[in-house]
């Protein structure tokens, strides 16, 4: 008997241990939203004042990543014209399965020359694509790149919905071996060896400055300070979506240059982590809880039947 009690005690102890483990795992899920970032991660700051729209970055990216032949040569600047940009509410060309980066042109009344803006994956510090991916196809590397593993991808395309910058695109031409197409910061071929991405190396104007993200923020602030009339006092990507590795400087309000200025300053995981942290609890506790409710309810019913049966006898 004593033995039995001890057994039951140790069982209960184990049960408490299990509960503690669950609570701890909840804590670690919480901590994920407060992830302190990789301190030496790299980034790029894009200076819209310097870009001349030469599309050298697009050409370099196309060759480096082995992407398909473009519809028009990369030195054909008619792609900037409005009728070429097509839909998307005049937002210009977008990244797709054939191009990881695009440059768009913005004619603005307040400046006497067109403004060009390169877009690509911004390589968030706490990427929404990574958060949303239930097979962990995405990885944020210590170097700063958000890379993707096609081997485990099931093609659910949740990352495309999660991304606040609408960057990941689906390779619809190979839907049966699902593949998301997006900029990977030239991780495999360059970044992990400490070299800049192909677009940065190709940029003649040094509109793209590659370096440690912390240093780039200083560079950005310095440029704004030394030319206050030439820049708006904001570095896009310093805080947007919780901070991004690719950041921007602009002479006009970012909204005018096609940026989404309503992107929250918190990482997307902060909006879902409370919910996500409940999921394991729901999966572990609810079946047992409801099975218990079911048994209790049934027991009452059964007792009732038993009682009635007994009464009849």
């Amino acid at each position: 008997m004593k033995n039995k009690i001890i057994n039951r005690r140790s069982f209960i102890k184990g049960g408490f241990g299990g509960t503690a483990a669950t609570v701890l795992s909840l804590k670690s899920a919480r901590a994920a939203g407060d992830f302190d970032h990789y301190p030496d991660s790299m980034g790029v700051i894009v200076d819209l004042n310097r870009c001349v729209g030469c599309r050298s970055c697009e050409a370099a990216c196309n060759k480096e990543q082995g992407l398909p032949e473009p519809e028009k040569p990369f030195n054909d600047y008619s792609v900037f014209d409005a009728h070429e940009s097509g839909g998307h509410g005049g937002a210009g060309r977008r990244t797709d399965e054939t191009r990881y980066t695009v440059v768009n042109k913005y004619e603005l009344p307040e400046i006497d020359h067109p403004l060009y803006r390169k877009s690509q994956c911004n390589h968030c510090l706490e990427p929404a694509c990574l958060t949303s991916c239930f097979v962990n196809a995405y990885t944020k590397t210590p170097e700063g790149a958000v890379i993707y593993n096609a081997d485990v991808c099931v093609g659910c395309r949740t990352c495309m919905i999660a991304c606040p910058f609408y960057i990941p695109t689906f390779k619809y031409s190979s839907a049966f071996s699902p593949r998301i197409m997006k900029c990977i910061f030239c991780y495999d071929t360059r970044l992990k060896e400490g070299r800049p991405p192909a677009c940065v190396e190709a940029c003649p104007q040094e509109a793209l400055t590659f370096g440690k993200r912390v240093d780039l923020l200083e560079i950005g602030r310095k440029r704004i300070r030394q030319n206050p009339g030439g820049y708006v006092n904001h570095i896009y990507g310093e805080n947007e979506a919780g901070g991004t590795a690719w950041m921007y400087l602009s002479p006009v309000d970012f909204g005018e240059a096609g940026f989404d200025v309503h992107v929250p300053h918190e990482p997307v995981i902060n909006f879902v982590r409370d919910f996500l942290s409940i999921v394991p609890m729901v999966l572990v506790i609810w079946p047992a809880l409801f099975a218990g409710f079911h048994l209790l309810a049934n027991r009452k019913e059964q007792n009732k039947h038993h009682h009635i049966d007994g009464g009849e006898e």
């Binding site: 050409a59 032949e69 028009k72 040569p73 990369f74 054909d76």
Partner: peptide, 11 residues
């Protein structure tokens, strides 16, 4: 020209 898909290498 190869890099830019231009000239002889135009699409």
């Amino acid at each position: 020209e190869q890099r830019f898909n231009a000239g002889r290498y135009s699409p």
